[in-house]
């Protein structure tokens, strides 16, 4: 396992961060999913991402305790917004969504649930640029960092909303940005990544396989199970368009089967500003396959140059 610096936090994190929202998903084989998490930790992954409000914190805490990995694994969390919203909105103020007292209460509760002394990151999700100058969230997160309860302050950007972080990164207030980044969504590489590198701000690349679209060339009418939110995200024309683009990618690069997935993952690792790539791995087989992609290292510069033509959404 290779490790990279996570911005100014001083943490060295594995090139993969293990997403765990699948542990909360209906219909998942929890025994296999738990075994996959254990295998990932055993193989050296030392960063774990929880969903908002702690997500699968109890299950993760139990695994950390059982495996004794609690001291070396960095858990990244996202604070729950007190105002429910589906989309980023400047009309929701930072103080309404993320008041300092709420951030402290949720962080401390999470430390207890996980059985760890410090979170790797505490992040605000669906970041709005207006929030930088609002509320007491920053003061509280700085205090929690000073108390050693979190290692870093992060913001997590809404899908495709890459430029919303520019001012926050330039301000020096935050330690890490989480952003959607994949072959179809290369927008973060234009301005955000160079700025993060300059400001020594860590980058978590999210959705490296575009919500699984780059992991599958299945031609079934709808590859996502009933209840899976991706059924609505890809409905209906977007699924056809995405498949067409995956097929074109595979054809151009002579990729078959899982090599599309591997190329998608290696694409993300290839950018030097990326600290870690967040990815859910539901089975031990997926863990092994994804680790194999790591072994093959970054893509060649000429491949990366050709992949730029596959930029699509952002």
């Amino acid at each position: 396992m290779r490790f990279r610096g996570l911005g100014r936090t001083g943490l060295k994190v594995s090139e993969y961060t293990l997403g765990t929202s699948f542990l909360e998903r209906k219909g998942v084989d929890l025994a296999e999913a738990g075994a996959a998490v254990e295998l990932a930790l055993e193989r050296g992954i030392n960063a774990v991402e929880l969903g908002a409000g702690g997500g699968a914190a109890d299950a993760v805490g139990e695994i950390l305790e059982r495996t004794g990995a609690g001291q070396r694994v960095h858990v990244f969390s996202r604070v729950t917004s007190l105002v429910p919203f589906d989309l980023p909105s400047p009309h929701v103020t930072a103080q309404d969504a993320y008041p300092g007292a709420h951030i402290r209460a949720e962080t401390e509760a999470l430390l207890r649930r996980l059985g760890v002394e410090r979170l790797g990151l505490q992040q605000l999700h669906a970041w709005c640029p207006e929030w930088l100058h609002e509320g007491d969230w920053l003061e509280m997160l700085q205090r929690l960092r000073g108390e050693g309860k979190i290692a870093g302050i992060g913001i997590s950007l809404f899908d495709h909303d890459v430029d919303s972080a520019l001012e926050a990164v330039a301000s020096g207030a935050i330690d890490c940005v989480q952003v959607m980044y994949n072959i179809f969504d290369q927008g973060a590489a234009a301005s955000l990544f160079p700025l993060c590198a300059k400001q020594k701000v860590g980058v978590i690349a999210r959705s490296p396989l575009y919500f699984g679209a780059l992991a599958s060339q299945q031609q079934t009418a709808m590859p996502f199970a009933e209840g899976d939110w991706r059924r609505d995200y890809f409905f209906n024309e977007h699924l056809r368009e995405t498949r067409g683009r995956v097929v074109r990618l595979a054809r151009e690069f002579g990729l078959e089967g899982s090599s599309v997935t591997e190329t998608g993952l290696r694409f993300c690792f290839s950018h030097p500003a990326v600290s870690t790539v967040a990815l859910g791995m539901r089975t031990r087989r997926q863990v092994e396959a994804n680790l194999q992609a790591l072994d093959h290292g970054p893509l060649a510069p000429e491949t990366l140059a050709r992949l730029r033509a596959h930029r699509w959404l952002c």
């Binding site: 430029d163 991706r230 609505d232 995200y233 409905f235 977007h238 952002c314």
Partner: peptide, 17 residues
């Protein structure tokens, strides 16, 4: 509403841009 949420999750920031 479910399809609308899925659609806007994808499209809203792209439309703003």
């Amino acid at each position: 509403q479910r399809r609308y949420r899925g659609f806007m999750r994808r499209e809203f920031p792209l439309l703003c841009q």
